[in-house]
Amino acid sequence: MELTGSILVLTGAFFLFSAGLGLLRMPDTFTRIQAGTKASTLGNILVLAGLGFYHPDWALKLLVVAYFVLMTNPLSSHALSRAAHAIRTPMAPSTMVDALREEGDRQGNGDVS
């Protein structure tokens, strides 16, 4: 039981570590947003699940925290990346497709909203 919990915590910590690494190493803002958000959300939930194995009586509160992070973290990074797109943050030279810009052009206004 405890071994399962600690392995889950270790996996989560590895994902958090890779989130930090991606945040530092990725070439432009948008890739940093996706690296920082996805990996850290998964890592956080894994750490909380591992702690749930240690303390089964804390499980409900840990579940609430995990649910909250799962709901809010993608939301805030979505708003952030939309803002970054709106103020024309430069993208990495290797970017091929800008779907949000194309959608805005198709609707006839340059300003995507």
Binding site: L16, L23, T37, S40, N44, V47, S77
Partner: peptide, 14 residues
């Protein structure tokens, strides 16, 4: 910087 703060918060929760 805001992305870094956001990531740091999630790490801090863990």
């Amino acid at each position: 910087r805001v992305v870094a703060i956001d990531m740091l918060t999630v790490v801090s929760i863990a």
